[in-house]
Every structure is written in C-alpha cells, then in structure tokens.
C-alpha cells in the first residue's frame, strides 16, 4: 500500500519537475517562462520530498519530518525569487508578449 502511494508521489513529482523545465525551454517570452519553474517545479520537488519523508518514516519506524523543512523553505522562497526576477526583468525592459504597464511612482522612471 505505501509502496503504491510512494511510487505515485515519486512519479507525479518527477513529472511536474519535468513539465516545469519544459515550460522554461518551450515558452516564448521571459514572463510566461517564469510560471513553469515557480509553480510546477516547486510542487514537483515538494511531492518528491514528501515521498522521501514517507519512505524514511516507514523504513526506520520513526517519524522523519525534516524533509518538511526543505519543502516549506522551497514554497516560501519560490515566489520571492519569482517576484525579484520579474521585477528585474521589468527594470531591464525585457521583451514581453503582453503589453507592459506604465510604471507609476518609480523612484527612477526611465524616459520613454
């Protein structure tokens, strides 16, 4: 039973990790590429880490929870780095498929 659950978690985790990177390689502008790694990859690695916690908890007959730490850390840091990257890209005026909004209240507003 745990074997099936474990296999399922590992497969979904690996599949999501792959899909995240596929999005990174396949999509056409920076801002759309940002979505794959922030969401799909994070959930994928989260699934793998939970699988690891389950595996060691069953094998050693004691609860192994330190994987939860890395999972939490990843889920907290992924949106932060995504936000910073998007901000840097807007600052550098990276090519975008969507219309870039007018930037209000910026300390150093670039001249159009």
């Amino acid at each position: 039973m745990t074997d099936i659950l474990l296999s399922l978690l590992i497969l979904t985790g690996a599949a999501f990790t792959f899909i995240g990177s596929l999005g990174l390689a396949r999509l056409r502008d920076f801002y759309t590429r940002l979505h794959g790694p922030t969401k799909a990859t994070t959930l994928g690695v989260g699934c793998l880490l939970i699988a690891s916690a389950l595996y060691f908890s069953v094998r050693d007959e004691g609860i192994s929870l330190h994987e939860v730490l890395v999972t939490l850390f990843l889920f907290i840091t992924a949106p932060v780095s995504a936000h910073l990257l998007a901000k840097a890209a807007l600052h550098l005026r990276v090519k975008s498929l969507a219309a870039v909004p007018r930037q209000r209240g910026e300390p150093h507003e670039p001249a159009e």
Binding site: Y31, L34, H35, T38, K39, T42, F75, I76, A78, P79, V80, A82, H83, A86, K87, L90, Q103, R104, G105, E106, P107
Partner: peptide, 20 residues
C-alpha cells in the same frame, strides 16, 4: 504577493512605489 505567485496562472511582478 507570495500567494498570488503560487496560485493558478499568476505571478506578482512589481509593487508600485506608493504601495497602492
């Protein structure tokens, strides 16, 4: 902002200077 980045189809990109 973090919640928006993790939920369906959206990533928060920038907070305006006046925080509005």
């Amino acid at each position: 902002a973090n919640t928006i980045s993790l939920t369906p189809g959206t990533v928060s990109a920038q907070l305006s200077g006046d925080r509005r």
